[in-house]
């Protein structure tokens, strides 16, 4: 895989990202061996990004969950120590996922506000750069010229912004769905997200 196609990025954004908190919660409810939720999620994204076509996928949420399930199964097979107990746990994972409820759909309608809040919560300089890039649509080069800083610095602020958004979105932008293995640092930031919408870094 080289650079991901724009079309696939948008597909992941629209069809997988919104279900990531549910996927993580589901994976956490059924811990399997010492598999980390983050690892399964990343591998799931890798598989979905690498699919030749997604046209045939009618229910992306279901598909993402099934992919995560297959990731777990293949790891269990490779580990060779498939305890009966573990397999029973995995079988429970097999129950399939229902459609998002009306409530979920409605509660998602503040997505734009969520993006706005996330940007507002970025550290000062990072927020300024991110706003110019995302709200005003300026290029990194134009931002560098406008702010009188180097393009390298702009790139670093963009990277930092993306990193902080990665922590928020999909992992509990609505609170309470933080990574199961978060370090003390990450956990404290998670609380900060929920309480004030601000991020420290």
């Amino acid at each position: 895989m080289t650079r991901i196609a724009r079309e696939r990025t948008l597909w992941l954004m629209q069809n997988v990202l919104p279900h990531e908190p549910a996927l993580r919660a589901w994976l956490r409810r059924k811990p399997v061996g010492n598999l980390e939720v983050d690892d399964v999620v990343q591998e799931t994204y890798a598989i979905l990004a690498g699919l030749e076509s997604v046209h045939g996928i009618r229910n992306p949420k279901n598909y993402a969950f099934q992919t995560a399930y297959s990731v777990i199964i293949s790891h269990l097979r490779r580990s060779r120590i498939v305890a009966i107990r573990t397999m029973a746990d995995v079988d429970l994972l097999g129950v399939m996922i229902d459609e998002p409820s009306l409530e979920q759909q409605l509660s998602d309608r503040d997505e734009l506000r969520q993006v706005a809040q996330a940007i507002a919560g970025l550290p000062d300089k990072c927020r300024e750069v991110f706003t110019l890039r995302r709200v005003e649509g300026m290029s990194q080069r134009e931002i560098a010229e406008r702010l009188g800083i180097s393009e390298n610095t702009v790139e670093k602020h963009v990277a930092k912004g993306i990193r902080l958004l990665m922590r928020i979105f999909g992992r509990g932008g609505k609170g309470g769905d933080y990574s199961s293995k978060g370090s003390a640092k990450e956990a404290s930031e998670g609380e900060a997200d929920d309480a004030s919408g601000k991020l420290r870094d």
Binding site: L12, R134, V135, F169
Partner: peptide, 29 residues
């Protein structure tokens, strides 16, 4: 590869901020 795909998706998601328009003031949010 998975983290990269996810990062691209999240960065694309932040593009929605464009709908906020030039009058966006982070203090409001």
């Amino acid at each position: 590869a998975g983290a990269y795909a996810r990062a691209e998706a999240i960065f694309a998601y932040s593009e929605r901020a464009k709908a906020l328009g030039a009058g966006f003031d982070p203090a409001d949010f």
